[in-house]
Amino acid sequence: MENIIEVKNLVKDFNGFKAVNDISFYVKKGEVFGFLGPNGAGKSTTIRMLTTLTRPTSGQATVAGHDIVNEPANVREHIGLVAEKLILYDRLTAMENLMFFGSLYHLPKKETKDRAMKWLKILEMEKWAHKLAGTFSTGMKQRVNIARALLTEPEVMFLDEPTLGLDPQTSRSIRDFIKDLHAHSVTVILTTHIMPEADELSDNIAIIDHGKIISIDTPAGLKASIKKDNATLEDVFLQLTGRNMRDDATVHIPSARGHMFGGKSRIR
């Protein structure tokens, strides 16, 4: 199968701090690619580079056949993003949010409306379509946020901790949803700190630490690689990245500052 993402020697240097240090990997079309690593390992920075939000210091990458540095506009037409921060306007209704983002992708109004209604229905949010997003619970917001990312029917979906801070019910429905995407051969790049989640969903998993990829394999392959009976993905993760807790390197990454002041502890 063809590669939808190819990354070669990608480096991101924040004033001397190498957040991403010479990584190379590829993602096949239609697979769910798990991207794991401790806090500050470089997951988010990699995703920001692949989604053209951050310029790499050196190295190349293509997404859907387009270079992320030279053809960012083409890349943007093929991707969707559900990041740690919700991309929704609190003062607009769910529908207005979707209509606005649809207009950014030059979709015809009618088409946007139909698609928005379809996704809201699938995500069981159609009752709330005309309520302000600011009044929603986190789970409801995340569902609208996912509808937003899917509105443009992207070939590649980047899901950066989509189940962070959600109740088990919503997390479950989002996991089902990722499987659904997989069934419709949408490529999914998934980052998460929840090991069973990664294990359940991913075709391939990359473990990244200190800006470098230390292992890429199938979940089964990773588990087989360590000498332990009935090894879980968590065992693999802890063995590869060590048991020490990490100083959050988020100081160097403005986009991640929210965690330091947001009060959400990400150590589980």
Partner: peptide, 13 residues
């Protein structure tokens, strides 16, 4: 701050 800027920046505009 809200993160919505990313949503604008990844759109093909």
């Amino acid at each position: 701050e809200a993160g919505t800027l990313d949503g604008l920046l990844i759109a093909p505009v």
